[in-house]
Amino acid sequence: MIYIDCPHCGERNEDEFVYGGDVAHRRPEDPAALSDAQWCNYIYTVPNTKGWAEEHWWHMRGCQRWITVHRNSVNNELQSVLREKGND
């Protein structure tokens, strides 16, 4: 039960979130410019990073925003988010 630090809501249990993939796995800007093989490579091959990675997570049972989480896939260690200051 990892404890994900949502930049909006603070630390919450992982069961409030949905995993959404590695940030490094970006959709190509211009899919038409890619060969079939290049496109297939994008669709089917994820980075599968071993170690620290930036990940998309959706805070489904909270603010319902997509957030970025830094997680170490070797031991599930997490990095806390930097919060903007000045919220009233």
Partner: peptide, 13 residues
Amino acid sequence: DPYPSYAQRGSPQ
């Protein structure tokens, strides 16, 4: 599990 990991750790849920 619903997300990838190399940690061979169980979770309570």
